[in-house]
Amino acid sequence: MDIATLGGQLLGQIPLGDIVLYLTPFNLFMFVGALIFTTLIAISRTETQVEAEFGSLNDNEVKVGLKEFKIRRFLAVVCGLATAGAMITGDVFNFTLLVALIGILNIGIVSAVKQIDVLNAAFQYGLIAMIASLPLFGGAAIILASTGTLSILEIAQLSFTTPMMFFASLLLILGIAGETGIAPFYATKAEMFRTPGSPFIIIIHLSSLLVIVRAIEILLIINKPF
């Protein structure tokens, strides 16, 4: 599939040496959406969870402390920017680097909480994110070896697909599945949300979602199934 069928008309390119970003309405929409959500997160305050206390009529408020709030806001904003970058990049290796950055920031956003269950889940997620960097970067490397280029604009112009390119895409999607924690590896991420500090937690969800959408576009461009 060529870029115009998937993302609409090619609006322009931003050349940074061998790394050329390309702009289509599809990319720009997700890029601007990620930026708007990042701005909203940067100016918003966290939620407070209210738990009923056992054996009394009082409520227990689980709040986020100021120091925790600051580091989590910083990491969430960087995560939003990395997501926006992954939406607009036109280079497979840059995309994998940004996905790895998102994976590390997702651990960081929940690393400051005090709930032990959440920390355990974040530890398991960190293990997956580390293991997933092997298929992630390996997939990008095999794409480079089998197509001879990392630029998505150049890959879109190739007229052939080889089994090796399909294998590379398989590795790439496995790496992205591990880094973003989609099914069937969702359990760690689902546990990580059981903590106060809602807008920062939501960016974990949103970044995974947008990265998956963008990864599907890149894999369709590489494999040209239709």
């Binding site: 398991q124 092997l134 197509t147 090796m164 294998f167 398989l170 591990g178 359990a187 760690t188």
Partner: peptide, 28 residues
């Protein structure tokens, strides 16, 4: 169960990497 997830992931990754040996090499 979050504790099982890294194992499941590693097994799937191992299987896919092993099938990689069957893929014909086509270098550009």
């Amino acid at each position: 169960n979050p504790k099982r997830i890294p194992r499941v992931f590693s097994i799937i990754l191992g299987v896919i990497l092993l099938t990689g040996f069957l893929i014909p090499m086509a270098l550009n």
